[in-house]
C-alpha cells in the first residue's frame, strides 16, 4: 500500500505544513506555508487535513513521479500543471497514474505554489511540525532524487466518456498581480513614528530581491521614528512592519525571529500575509489601513470559504469512494497547540 514519489526536478521546494505553533515560546519562529490560504485549499482539495504535510514550490519549475496511482491538488500562484504531459487544472483535485510525471512549470504573477497529495507525504517532525526552520537547519528540502513516502493510493478518477477534468469545484481564487494591496492594522508602537506613520499609506513600496520567508524588504518612502532610544527585546508578531534602517521597510513573515528590538509601526493582517507570500521582487505593494475587528471578520469569511469547499470535497470524494478506510491516516488537528 505504501508508495514512493521520486523528485526529478526539485527547483526550490520543501515539505511544510501550517507551522510550528509551539515554537515561538521556545524562541523558534512559527514558519510553515507562507500562503496559508493556498496551502489549506490544496490540502482540502486533496482530501487531507488542513495541517497535513504538503509541498511548497517557490518560483522555479518542479517535477516528480510516483510508483502508484495517486491524487493531488495544486494551488497558489498561476502556473502550468501537467500530468503525464497533459495540462491539468489548478485548484481542483487531479488524478495521477503510476509512472506519470507531475510537472509544475512557469510559476508567474505570484511566487509560491502548493502541491498536496491525498494521504499526505512522510516528513520528520520537530515539536509536532514538519515546517522547515532554516536557522536551526531543520526540515525536508527536496533535491533531485529525493524519495517521499506516500500513504495512500487512489485509483484513477476519470470522467467515464471523455478524458476531461472531472472536477469543477469552483473555489474563488485569491487575486494575484504585480500591484498588491496589503491590509495592515496600527502597530503597538505606531505613536513612536508621529505624523510620519501616515507615509505608509501615501505611496507604493517596491519588493526587494532580498525578501524571503523571514521577511519582505520594501523600498519606498519611509516613516521615521521620533527617538533613537533602545527598545527592550520584545516578542514581535508575524506581519510586523518595522523600519530597521534608512533604506528599507521590513515586513516580517512566518520565518521571523521571535523577538526583536525595533518598534512595530503596523501589522499586516492574516490575509495580508497571504498576499505578501505571493509578492515577487519588483512587485509594488500598497498598504491599506484596517482595524483588528474588520481584519478578523475578513479572515473568518475566507476560512468559511474553505469550510464550504471542504464540505463539497468530502461529499464528492465520498461518492467516488476516495478517502474511505482502509488506509485513512489520522492527522493531528490543524491548530493543536
Amino acid at each position: 500500500m505504501n508508495g514512493r514519489i521520486v523528485v526529478e526536478q526539485p527547483g526550490n521546494s520543501v515539505v511544510t505544513d501550517l507551522g510550528r505553533f509551539r515554537g515561538p515560546r521556545f524562541g523558534l519562529p512559527v514558519n510553515g506555508a507562507l500562503d496559508q490560504f493556498s496551502a489549506r485549499a490544496a490540502n482540502i482539495l486533496a482530501g487531507n487535513e488542513d495541517n497535513a504535510p504538503l509541498l511548497e514550490v517557490t518560483a522555479l519549475d518542479f517535477r516528480m513521479r510516483a510508483d502508484q496511482d495517486f491524487l493531488i491538488a495544486v494551488t497558489g500562484a498561476p502556473l502550468t500543471l501537467t500530468v503525464g504531459g497533459r495540462e491539468q487544472p489548478q485548484w481542483e483535485p487531479v488524478s495521477v497514474r503510476a509512472g506519470e510525471a507531475v510537472a509544475i512549470r512557469g510559476i508567474h504573477t505570484g511566487l509560491r505554489a502548493y502541491l498536496a497529495i491525498h494521504g499526505s507525504v512522510d516528513a520528520p517532525l520537530l515539536m509536532g511540525s514538519c515546517a522547515p526552520d532554516t536557522v536551526i537547519g531543520f526540515g525536508l528540502k527536496l533535491g533531485e532524487g529525493t524519495v517521499l513516502g506516500i500513504q495512500r493510493s487512489v485509483a484513477p478518477l476519470r470522467q467515464p466518456y471523455f478524458d476531461i477534468p472531472l472536477f469543477r469545484l469552483g473555489l474563488e481564487r485569491p487575486v494575484m498581480g504585480s500591484e498588491l494591496v496589503v491590509d495592515v492594522t496600527d502597530g503597538p508602537d505606531v505613536a513612536e513614528f508621529g505624523d510620519s506613520a501616515d507615509l505608509l499609506f501615501a505611496s507604493g513600496y517596491t519588493v526587494s530581491g532580498r525578501s524571503n520567508h523571514i521577511g519582505l524588504r520594501l523600498g519606498g518612502e519611509l516613516p521615521e521614528r521620533l527617538s533613537n532610544a533602545e527598545v527592550l527585546s520584545r516578542g514581535v508578531p508575524v506581519g510586523a512592519v518595522e523600519v530597521p534602517n534608512r533604506e528599507e521597510l521590513l515586513v516580517l513573515h512566518r520565518g521571523r525571529g521571535v523577538t526583536a528590538g525595533y518598534p512595530v509601526l503596523a501589522v499586516a493582517t492574516s490575509l495580508g500575509l497571504h498576499v505578501l507570500a505571493q509578492a515577487r521582487p519588483g512587485d509594488v505593494v500598497r498598504f491599506r489601513k484596517t482595524t483588528v475587528a474588520e481584519a478578523t471578520l475578513a479572515y473568518r469569511a475566507s476560512m468559511r470559504q474553505l469550510e464550504s469547499l471542504r464540505t463539497t470535497v468530502n461529499t464528492v470524494f465520498k461518492l467516488l469512494g476516495v478517502g474511505d478506510e482502509p488506509g485513512w491516516r489520522e492527522l493531528p488537528p490543524a491548530l493543536a497547540i
Binding site: 502597530g187 508578531p237 493582517t269 483588528v292 481584519a295 479572515y299
Partner: peptide, 8 residues
C-alpha cells in the same frame, strides 16, 4: 493590539 493574531 498587535494585528489580528496577537496582543502585546
Amino acid at each position: 493590539e498587535s494585528g489580528d493574531s496577537a496582543v502585546r
